[in-house]
């Protein structure tokens, strides 16, 4: 089931991606709306990370193409930010929390320009937003998993992008951090930014997102949460292996979401 966005900011056109000639994503064709908090959901190995890596130009596309803001990625890179899965970097790297957040400013600087005071203030603001200002000079190996995740989020905020792709930003964070991260994302979408998040937990997905993409190598569904996040679709995505799904539809129905119709 596929619903097209009225005000699309990302378009996938017949996207196919393969690793070593073995396709892991087939014919993904969808549009995603501007200003929404969008959840990409599917089982392990469904190709969620692959989808956003392909969108960010990190993988060669087998066929099809992706457009953002009605342009090719290369033209709008400065408006797009990517938050990789936490495990992808070496947290023993000799660098501080502030240094990592400053990396978000690099793309705004030229080859020779060094970060200015304004960039540093901006980075500090982002750290404050994610509640990490007390850790500015801490070496990154001395952070907990949830703190590392917040540093990554701060780096993304420092990019001042309009479109964010985040790979499992809620993985391994406690309830308080989860709420804090969610609040930041909601503030971002309220300001017209679009946040696309790979997510695993179905219960919280029902509460978090405005729009849901269900993926299992193929696109199972894409649309506003109340239209696509139901038992049938989830059974189709997870291949009937889920037994706890009955409550999920209930959760969506119970959720207060006045502005849902806008998508």
């Amino acid at each position: 089931m596929k619903i097209e966005a009225k005000n699309p900011v990302v378009e996938f056109h017949d996207l196919t991606v393969s690793y070593h000639k073995k396709p892991v994503l087939w014919n993904i064709d969808m549009t995603l709306p501007q200003g929404a908090l969008i959840g990409i959901i599917g089982p392990n190995g469904a190709g969620k990370s692959t989808l956003i890596k392909a969108a960010m130009g990190l993988l060669p596309l087998g066929s099809g193409y992706v457009r953002m803001f009605d342009e090719a990625l290369d033209k709008v890179r400065h408006k797009v930010s990517y938050v990789p899965q936490r495990e992808t970097v070496d947290w023993d790297f000799p660098t501080s929390v502030l240094d990592v957040v400053m990396m978000g400013r690099y793309s705004k600087l030229g080859l020779l320009t060094r970060p200015r005071k304004a960039d540093k203030e901006m980075a500090m603001n982002c750290l404050r937003k994610v509640g990490m200002e007390a850790y500015t000079d801490r070496q990154i190996s001395q952070l907990s998993g949830g703190q590392q995740q917040r540093v990554f989020l701060a780096r993304a905020l420092a990019q001042e992008a309009d479109l964010y792709f985040m790979d499992e930003p809620f993985a391994g964070v406690d309830a308080a951090t989860e709420a804090a991260i969610l609040a930041i994302m909601q503030e971002m979408t309220a300001n017209g930014k679009t946040v696309i998040v790979v997510h695993h937990d179905l219960q919280s997905a029902a509460e978090f997102f405005d729009w849901i993409v269900l993926l299992n190598m193929r696109l199972v569904a894409s649309g506003p949460i109340d239209k696509v996040f139901n038992n049938d679709m989830l059974q189709e995505t997870y291949g009937g292996k889920l037994t706890v799904l009955a409550e999920v539809g209930e959760l969506v129905r119970k959720r207060q979401m006045p502005s849902r119709e806008k998508y």
Binding site: M56, V89, V100, L111
Partner: peptide, 21 residues
């Protein structure tokens, strides 16, 4: 001259690539 680029591609090459480096 290349400090930012060298540093970023060393720490997080995927992120560096997405910023156009």
């Amino acid at each position: 001259v290349g400090f930012k680029q060298l540093y970023l591609t060393t720490f997080d090459p995927a992120f560096a690539a997405t910023t156009g480096i």
